[in-house]
Design a protein around this nucleic acid. Structure first.
Lengths: 177, 177
DNA sequence: GCCCTGTTTCGGTAATTCCTGAAACTACAA
DNA sequence: TTGTAGTTTCAGGAATTACCGAAACAGGGC
């Protein structure tokens, strides 16, 4: 890590680059593709709207790649595209509020991952419901337990993702005591 | 989906196979490799201890693959290996309690994913702490906000993963109202 | 119609991750 | 010591996923 005078503009550029790289790595660990996480990192730490070309330039990635990941981020709701009056170019802007980001991610992961899992388990529980024999009964019980748990988790997640930061954070602090 | 008489043993075998497949898919969506999830699914829904060979046989996978994924599951703490007296073969057994499973997964993901992320962010916040200029200050603020949020999430997760089901579930139900 | 600016799609390739099968290793028993 | 039953490692191949670059497309103005 290089050290710069406090007001050297390079210090900020380097730090941002660093953050983008780190966020990419973090994203990877969380099952999100590296580029998508990097584009997101760039957009949440920049002060201005960015165009596809600027993002390509900054991250040194192809147009196709930039395009795809911008679309994905939009579909998650983590960024919005804005068109400035009179201009044809498309610009992007991220949701920067951390709590809102968190809620968006919760909701989307719930929708994309939790719901399908629930459906699969429920169907599996249903079809073994009436089976006879100790093994079958134990199997059904286990599936049911999993299914019930996901159900509860789902409700809790839904509730949290609809809450305001102003009500959840104090609550979390109280919970910790 | 085939329908069988209530006491047809094939019904159970098919249902289990189905569950194993589904759990594999679910695992994949959650960033866990398919085989690992399938081995886990097998072990949580079986009544008896299973050897590596039996697992290979059931899932039609190679010894190397079975071995690696069993080791990984052990390292997560989701299964244990047991050696029966007088036998040299190694058998495996899963933690079947859903709440305990959940806590194990929480703890491990915290350790493997959340902690490194926190470290990266904190370092990034620290190095931009003293920078001058509106942009740099905004950047530092954003990073700090992310870092603080992860910190709080970390505490909450830690607390939850140490709790008993008997205290958390009623609590969750109350929270939902 | 034809250019101009920007967006979207897509075939091929590169990179990564996963899996196999076989060989190497360990420990015990005859 | 050799045989046997089991575990572990690993090089290479298969499958999946991500990425590039170029071509196709869309919608204005002229």
């Amino acid at each position: 890590m290089k050290t710069r005078p406090e007001n050297d503009p390079r210090a900020l550029l380097e730090a941002r680059d660093d953050f983008v790289t780190q966020w990419g790595t973090i994203g990877t660990a969380w099952g999100i593709n590296r580029t998508m996480a990097q584009v997101h990192a760039l957009l949440i730490t920049t002060g201005h709207l960015m165009s596809t070309d600027e993002i390509m330039e900054d991250l040194k990635i192809s147009r196709g790649n930039a395009h795809k990941n911008l679309r994905d981020l939009v579909s998650w709701g983590l960024i919005r595209s804005v068109v400035r009056k009179g201009e044809r170019k498309e610009y992007f802007e991220a949701e920067k509020n951390v709590w809102k980001m968190f809620c968006i991610i919760l909701r989307e992961r719930r929708r994309r991952e939790l719901r399908p899992a629930q459906a699969a388990l429920q169907e599996c529980a249903a079809r073994t419901k009436g089976l006879k024999g100790a093994e079958a009964v134990a199997f059904n019980k286990q599936i049911k337990a999993l299914s019930d748990f996901l159900e509860l988790a789902d409700s809790v997640i839904t509730k949290i993702s609809r809450s305001e930061q102003s009500s959840m954070v104090p609550w979390a602090l109280k919970f910790l005591k």
